[in-house]
Protein backbone atom coordinates (compact mmCIF):
# COMPACT_ATOMS: atom_id res chain seq x y z
CA UNK A 1 0.00 0.00 0.00
CA UNK A 2 2.81 2.39 0.86
CA UNK A 3 4.05 2.10 -2.74
CA UNK A 4 0.84 3.56 -4.15
CA UNK A 5 2.05 7.14 -3.93
CA UNK A 6 5.68 7.13 -4.96
CA UNK A 7 8.46 9.64 -4.36
CA UNK A 8 6.94 11.00 -1.16
CA UNK A 9 10.29 11.05 0.61
CA UNK A 10 12.77 10.75 -2.29
CA UNK A 11 12.89 13.37 -5.07
CA UNK A 12 11.12 12.41 -8.30
CA UNK A 13 13.71 11.95 -11.07
CA UNK A 14 11.78 14.23 -13.45
CA UNK A 15 10.93 17.15 -11.16
CA UNK A 16 13.87 16.91 -8.75
CA UNK A 17 11.53 17.41 -5.76
CA UNK A 18 9.36 15.03 -3.75
CA UNK A 19 5.76 14.70 -4.86
CA UNK A 20 4.78 15.99 -1.43
CA UNK A 21 6.65 19.23 -2.01
CA UNK A 22 5.30 19.60 -5.53
CA UNK A 23 1.82 19.07 -4.10
CA UNK A 24 2.13 21.68 -1.35
CA UNK A 25 3.47 24.27 -3.81
CA UNK A 26 0.56 23.63 -6.19
CA UNK A 27 -1.79 24.03 -3.23
CA UNK A 28 -0.09 27.29 -2.23
CA UNK A 29 -0.42 28.48 -5.84
CA UNK A 30 -4.19 27.94 -5.56
CA UNK A 31 -4.14 29.83 -2.25
CA UNK A 32 -2.42 32.78 -3.95
CA UNK A 33 -5.36 32.89 -6.35
CA UNK A 34 -7.89 32.66 -3.49
CA UNK A 35 -6.38 35.58 -1.56
CA UNK A 36 -5.51 37.33 -4.84
CA UNK A 37 -9.20 37.37 -5.79
CA UNK A 38 -10.06 38.98 -2.45
CA UNK A 39 -7.25 41.54 -2.71
CA UNK A 40 -8.57 42.29 -6.19
CA UNK A 41 -12.04 42.76 -4.70
CA UNK A 42 -10.53 45.12 -2.13
CA UNK A 43 -8.95 47.26 -4.86
CA UNK A 44 -12.21 47.29 -6.81
CA UNK A 45 -14.23 48.29 -3.75
CA UNK A 46 -11.75 50.94 -2.66
CA UNK A 47 -11.30 52.57 -6.07
CA UNK A 48 -15.06 52.46 -6.64
CA UNK A 49 -15.94 54.04 -3.29
CA UNK A 50 -16.61 57.77 -3.02
CA UNK A 51 -14.79 57.80 0.31
CA UNK A 52 -12.69 55.21 2.08
CA UNK A 53 -11.61 55.35 5.73
CA UNK A 54 -7.98 55.23 6.82
CA UNK A 55 -7.56 51.86 8.52
CA UNK A 56 -5.62 53.35 11.44
CA UNK A 57 -8.64 55.54 12.35
CA UNK A 58 -10.91 52.51 12.78
CA UNK A 59 -8.61 49.63 13.70
CA UNK A 60 -6.16 49.00 16.52
CA UNK A 61 -2.69 49.42 14.95
CA UNK A 62 -0.63 48.61 18.11
CA UNK A 63 -2.48 45.29 18.57
CA UNK A 64 -2.05 44.42 14.89
CA UNK A 65 1.67 45.31 15.10
CA UNK A 66 2.05 42.93 18.04
CA UNK A 67 0.20 40.27 16.02
CA UNK A 68 2.53 40.83 13.06
CA UNK A 69 5.53 40.27 15.32
CA UNK A 70 3.88 37.17 16.82
CA UNK A 71 3.32 35.69 13.38
CA UNK A 72 6.85 36.48 12.23
CA UNK A 73 8.20 34.84 15.40
CA UNK A 74 6.07 31.75 14.70
CA UNK A 75 7.57 31.55 11.21
CA UNK A 76 11.01 31.44 12.82
CA UNK A 77 10.00 28.78 15.35
CA UNK A 78 8.49 26.49 12.70
CA UNK A 79 11.57 26.74 10.51
CA UNK A 80 13.67 26.05 13.63
CA UNK A 81 11.55 22.96 14.30
CA UNK A 82 12.42 21.74 10.80
CA UNK A 83 16.12 22.56 11.33
CA UNK A 84 16.09 20.69 14.68
CA UNK A 85 14.61 17.64 13.02
CA UNK A 86 17.13 17.87 10.17
CA UNK A 87 19.78 17.73 12.93
CA UNK A 88 17.97 14.64 14.27
CA UNK A 89 16.94 16.31 17.52
CA UNK A 90 13.34 15.27 18.15
CA UNK A 91 12.98 16.88 21.58
CA UNK A 92 14.09 20.26 20.22
CA UNK A 93 11.69 19.82 17.32
CA UNK A 94 8.90 19.34 19.86
CA UNK A 95 9.83 22.52 21.73
CA UNK A 96 9.87 24.66 18.58
CA UNK A 97 6.71 23.11 17.15
CA UNK A 98 4.99 23.62 20.51
CA UNK A 99 6.11 27.26 20.51
CA UNK A 100 4.76 27.70 16.98
CA UNK A 101 1.35 26.42 18.08
CA UNK A 102 1.36 28.67 21.17
CA UNK A 103 2.26 31.71 19.07
CA UNK A 104 -0.51 30.83 16.61
CA UNK A 105 -2.97 30.63 19.51
CA UNK A 106 -1.68 33.98 20.83
CA UNK A 107 -2.35 35.50 17.39
CA UNK A 108 -5.93 34.23 17.51
CA UNK A 109 -6.44 35.53 21.07
CA UNK A 110 -5.24 39.02 20.06
CA UNK A 111 -7.46 38.86 16.98
CA UNK A 112 -10.32 37.81 19.23
CA UNK A 113 -9.80 40.90 21.40
CA UNK A 114 -9.78 43.04 18.26
CA UNK A 115 -12.99 41.50 16.94
CA UNK A 116 -14.56 41.75 20.42
CA UNK A 117 -13.82 45.49 20.62
CA UNK A 118 -15.32 45.99 17.17
CA UNK A 119 -18.47 44.03 18.02
CA UNK A 120 -18.86 46.05 21.23
CA UNK A 121 -18.98 49.19 19.11
CA UNK A 122 -21.47 47.49 16.76
CA UNK A 123 -19.03 47.31 13.87
CA UNK A 124 -20.11 44.20 11.98
CA UNK A 125 -19.41 42.95 8.44
CA UNK A 126 -22.63 44.62 7.28
CA UNK A 127 -21.73 47.99 8.89
CA UNK A 128 -19.78 49.29 5.88
CA UNK A 129 -17.90 48.14 2.79
CA UNK A 130 -14.64 48.64 4.67
CA UNK A 131 -15.71 46.35 7.50
CA UNK A 132 -17.13 43.81 5.01
CA UNK A 133 -13.77 43.36 3.29
CA UNK A 134 -11.88 43.67 6.60
CA UNK A 135 -13.81 40.81 8.19
CA UNK A 136 -13.69 38.72 5.01
CA UNK A 137 -9.92 39.01 4.60
CA UNK A 138 -8.95 38.70 8.27
CA UNK A 139 -11.59 36.00 8.86
CA UNK A 140 -10.31 33.86 6.00
CA UNK A 141 -6.75 34.41 7.20
CA UNK A 142 -7.82 33.44 10.74
CA UNK A 143 -9.34 30.21 9.39
CA UNK A 144 -5.98 29.44 7.79
CA UNK A 145 -4.33 29.95 11.19
CA UNK A 146 -6.83 27.51 12.76
CA UNK A 147 -6.10 24.98 9.98
CA UNK A 148 -2.36 25.37 10.59
CA UNK A 149 -2.79 24.81 14.33
CA UNK A 150 -4.74 21.57 13.71
CA UNK A 151 -2.10 20.20 11.31
CA UNK A 152 0.79 21.27 13.55
CA UNK A 153 -0.87 19.69 16.61
CA UNK A 154 -1.21 16.45 14.65
CA UNK A 155 2.46 16.58 13.64
CA UNK A 156 3.55 17.38 17.20
CA UNK A 157 1.66 14.54 18.87
CA UNK A 158 0.30 11.47 17.01
CA UNK A 159 1.98 12.29 13.69
CA UNK A 160 5.47 12.37 15.20
CA UNK A 161 5.41 8.56 15.61
CA UNK A 162 6.46 8.49 11.95
CA UNK A 163 9.89 9.80 13.01
CA UNK A 164 10.69 6.29 14.34
CA UNK A 165 9.56 4.42 11.23
CA UNK A 166 10.11 6.81 8.29
CA UNK A 167 12.23 9.78 9.46
CA UNK A 168 12.85 11.17 5.97
CA UNK A 169 9.14 11.22 5.17
CA UNK A 170 8.36 12.89 8.50
CA UNK A 171 10.99 15.57 7.84
CA UNK A 172 9.30 16.18 4.49
CA UNK A 173 5.95 16.59 6.24
CA UNK A 174 7.40 19.18 8.60
CA UNK A 175 8.87 21.04 5.65
CA UNK A 176 5.47 21.08 3.90
CA UNK A 177 3.71 22.23 7.09
CA UNK A 178 6.35 24.95 7.37
CA UNK A 179 5.80 26.09 3.77
CA UNK A 180 2.08 26.43 4.47
CA UNK A 181 2.73 28.33 7.69
CA UNK A 182 5.14 30.74 6.01
CA UNK A 183 2.50 31.37 3.35
CA UNK A 184 -0.02 32.29 6.07
CA UNK A 185 2.60 34.69 7.48
CA UNK A 186 3.20 36.07 3.98
CA UNK A 187 -0.49 36.86 3.49
CA UNK A 188 -0.56 38.73 6.80
CA UNK A 189 2.53 40.74 5.77
CA UNK A 190 0.35 42.25 3.01
CA UNK A 191 -2.93 42.32 4.95
CA UNK A 192 -1.42 44.36 7.78
CA UNK A 193 -0.41 47.50 5.83
CA UNK A 194 -3.32 47.26 3.38
CA UNK A 195 -6.05 47.09 6.04
CA UNK A 196 -4.50 48.85 9.05
CA UNK A 197 -2.09 51.46 7.76
CA UNK A 198 -3.39 52.76 4.41
Amino acid sequence: MSDMIRYISKPHPVTGVTNAKLGIWCFLASEVMLFGALFSAYILLRTGATEWPVGADLLNVPLATVNTLILIASSVTIVMSWASLAMKDLSRFRIYMGLTILLACAFLVVKGFEYGAKFEHHHFPNSSTFYAIYYTLTGLHGLHIVGGIVVNLYLLFPGSAMWQTEPERFLGRIECAGLYWHFVDLVWIFLFPVLYLL
Partner: peptide, 12 residues
Amino acid sequence: FFMHLISEKQII
Protein backbone atom coordinates in the same frame (compact mmCIF):
# COMPACT_ATOMS: atom_id res chain seq x y z
CA PHE B 1 15.02 32.10 3.35
CA PHE B 2 12.20 30.54 5.40
CA MET B 3 10.61 28.84 2.38
CA HIS B 4 14.07 28.01 0.98
CA LEU B 5 13.23 29.41 -2.45
CA ILE B 6 16.80 30.63 -2.74
CA SER B 7 17.95 27.04 -3.23
CA GLU B 8 14.78 25.51 -4.69
CA LYS B 9 14.44 23.35 -7.82
CA GLN B 10 13.44 24.89 -11.15
CA ILE B 11 10.01 23.29 -11.32
CA ILE B 12 8.86 25.25 -8.25
